[in-house]
Design a protein around this nucleic acid. Structure first.
Lengths: 243, 243
DNA sequence: CGCCTTTATAGTCAGAGTGACTATTAAGGA
DNA sequence: TCCTTAATAGTCACTCTGACTATAAAGGCG
């Protein structure tokens, strides 16, 4: 933090625009999905892109991210303000946007399976895409999305974040599927149970021990997210490295 | 990424300034030290602050961080370009700088024990401070510094980053002191050795098995940083949580 | 020159945690 | 009613770790 160029006159130097980009993930049908919007204007008209937008003069980047998320998903403000939003990193290559100098703060959001977005805001169209079968995205959004996937995969190892993908009440099988989907591996079911249940505060049984019936096999017990946020020791994914 | 306000005219809206702030850490004398500069102008004139500065119109934030680091430390460009620089996160509170809207991308750098900085650039003064005994810093730099300390402490657990604090050749005792200093705990020496030596690629013995003599006890074998970057399984700090 | 202190290095042992299993229970569907 | 599916219970060996003890090799100091 040193002296501003040109003695503080905010209009005397080439301005930067600051945006947020959101990698919104959900798990549906055993596949990782990501929310994308179709661009209605050049550049990259017709391409799909991460939702996002400009940070307004009087808001923080995180506020901007929550505002954009509410606009794109149609979720209520109160729902969005409770969601887990994680700042990923900031992308600042001078040529990442052909129009002007744009620095973008990327966030990752984890949401339970949601209805189709109504495509509000200025996006021409918005929908969930299978994160494993995507074409090229606009701008550097491929890179941002890959970084986001890496980050949440790593965070599942040492935090209780996986419950953010689940509805308020969930079975251990559903929680396990979150791990398997994000990591792209299969886990041993009894071992996964043992780990989750012996980690204090990871999950808590729903009072009255209700069970989810209607599925195919034996009804599963229901759990809620616990109070813990960190996993000690971590739940390491098999075979060393990331996807 | 949506339409720019006011139809792309870069001067038609309130501009953002984009800066970088650097938390440069080193270990000297068993204490964690951080590089600070004294501000020569208001606001916060006379206060100490993290080194940093404006991102220039044609450079990325990381380039700006390396440029500022070279200016503040007097290190050569080639040394700085080889250093480990890690993007921490971006601070975007609208009121974090009273002069104007400034969004700052924070980086953490880990360097071996260096000579006193020459205080180049526009900083009035620059020196190393014991990170455990600091007064209030300028702007939100207390917060950035605390976040940086947390991050590197966590990264020591699951990466081989600790070697970045060491000179090219180091003893296992010196490496252990890095962990103890950053985490603020004491580690069992034989257990630490075992962990480091059985992790493939963490360190490699210097050829010829030289030993560092001149110290007080038995001369220690010298090692270099190995090729590995990740630690599997991690080297978890004792007693769960962070400093 | 012999001790004492200091630091490096070697090794031991018990317990926690995990991976790879097998077995049993309880639902739905043909 | 049997078959399939999924949940749950439990076992066993192996790895890794924390807490130790023991030995080796330097410097300092009487």
């Amino acid at each position: 933090m040193s002296t501003a160029p040109e003695g503080y006159d905010p209009h005397a130097f080439e301005p930067f625009a600051v945006t947020v980009d959101l990698a919104v993930f959900t798990v549906r049908g055993g596949r990782l999905h990501v929310l994308l919007v179709e661009r209605g204007e050049d550049p990259y008209k017709g391409h799909w892109a991460l939702p996002g937008g400009f940070v307004l003069p009087r808001e923080s980047a995180e506020s901007a991210a929550r505002r954009e998320l509410a606009e794109e998903t149609g979720l209520t403000e109160s729902t969005v303000s409770a969601l887990h939003l994680e700042q990923l990193r900031t992308y600042s290559d001078p040529d990442r946007d052909p129009r002007m100098r744009v620095v973008s703060v990327a966030y990752a959001a984890l949401v339970p399976d949601l209805p189709e977005p109504r495509g509000g805001g200025d996006a021409a169209n918005a929908r969930w895409w299978d994160a494993g079968a995507l074409g090229a995205l606009a701008f550097d959004h491929d890179r941002i999305l890959a970084d986001a996937h890496d980050r949440i995969g790593a965070k599942l190892e040492y935090t209780c974040l996986a419950t953010a993908f689940c509805p308020a009440e969930f079975t251990l099988g559903e929680l396990q599927q979150v791990y398997e989907t994000v990591w792209g591996v299969e886990l041993d079911r009894p071992n996964f149970r043992r780990k989750v249940l012996t980690t204090p505060g990871f999950v808590q049984a729903v009072e009255g021990s209700p069970r989810r019936t209607g599925g195919r096999g034996k009804p599963a017990a229901l759990y809620r997210a616990g109070a813990a946020t960190a996993l000690h020791p971590p739940l390491l994914r098999p075979e060393g490295r990331s996807t």
